[in-house]
Design a protein around this nucleic acid. Structure first.
Length: 271
DNA sequence: CCATATACCTGGCAGC
DNA sequence: TGCTGCCAGGTATATG
């Protein structure tokens, strides 16, 4: 479910409410992708200073470190005034003086990891190689071009790798490539300057628009308040195999790249 | 250094 | 209704 927009929408939906809260308890359920790294009781008594996002990770800053949260493929967060009874797939409750932050994650590819700081081991390892943030001024066209120049892999896979630019997941990679008229199979380094500029702007556009619309995944995305996205952002190509391209009516094609589904219009995306 | 395959885990759905 | 096989929004890790 979560690509950058969904993670950002989730962050926005509970950051201000949890900020300033004192942690009363941390209850972990079934194992997630990685262990927390410390005894949950270490968190008790800490104060939540705020919530940031880096790529698809949420960073819950406290006065003594940072709690890294990742939603994996199927995770979602809920922030509620009181602690409801936990369901089968609820694997973390962070109980605070201002509410309970709960992680719901059926597949358990998500993670909750404690790090003493952003520059200490767990955080450094997880965040250290991440690429540019697409929705900040740090996403400089020239740097993006330089990043792509080094890569012989197909552009779709370079986008997903997250070491050049973060936050573009499987849905938005296909969408951004459609918007910029680029074939997903083209080697990243072979894309012309003007095309890279188009892609750069398409990535910003598609992600920013999805954030402003409250998250736009195709399925049941809900923010931490339980509100759904508006789903106004209709996919141009993702999941539309065989359906007419919204621009030229040509049937949308499907292919597999790096064991992931890719969708594109063979006419609108020539190179 | 880079590119690609693999693993993790559960639920939903199409097809029989 | 039940079973089987396939698919799913991510990414660290191993392997070439």
């Amino acid at each position: 479910m979560p690509e950058l927009p969904e993670v950002e929408v989730t962050r926005l939906s509970f950051a201000s409410q949890i900020s300033g809260a004192r942690i009363l308890a941390l209850n972990m359920g079934k194992p997630l992708r990685w262990p927390l790294g410390v005894a949950p009781s270490v968190l008790v008594g800490q104060t939540v200073l705020g919530v940031r996002r880096r790529g698809k990770y949420l960073l819950l800053d406290t006065d003594r470190g940072v709690l890294l949260l990742h939603l994996g493929m199927s995770g979602s967060l809920n922030f509620a005034p009181t602690q409801a009874s936990a369901g089968k797939h609820d694997h973390m409750d962070l109980v605070t003086t201002q509410g309970v932050l709960r992680l719901h994650d059926p597949r358990r590819f998500g993670a909750v990891v404690w790090s003493e700081s952003e520059n200490h081991e767990p955080a450094l390892k997880l965040l250290g190689k991440l690429g540019m943030e697409p929705l900040t001024d740090g996403f400089v066209l020239k740097l993006f071009q330089q990043g792509l120049k080094k890569r012989a892999a197909p552009i779709k896979q370079v986008l997903l790798a997250g070491d050049v630019v973060v936050g573009v997941g499987n849905i938005y990679a296909s969408e951004a490539l459609f918007m910029s008229g680029i074939r997903p199979t083209v080697k990243a380094q072979k894309i012309s300057g003007p095309r890279v500029a188009k892609l750069h702007s398409a990535i910003r556009q598609v992600l920013a628009r999805a954030v402003s619309q409250g998250g736009s995944s195709l399925k049941d995305f809900v923010n931490a308040q339980g509100k759904t996205g508006y789903f106004q952002l209709e996919a141009a190509v993702y999941g539309r195999t065989g359906l007419p391209c919204r621009v030229c009516e040509t049937p949308i094609k499907h292919m597999v790249q790096g064991q992931r589904a890719t969708f594109y219009c063979p006419v609108c995306q020539k190179l």
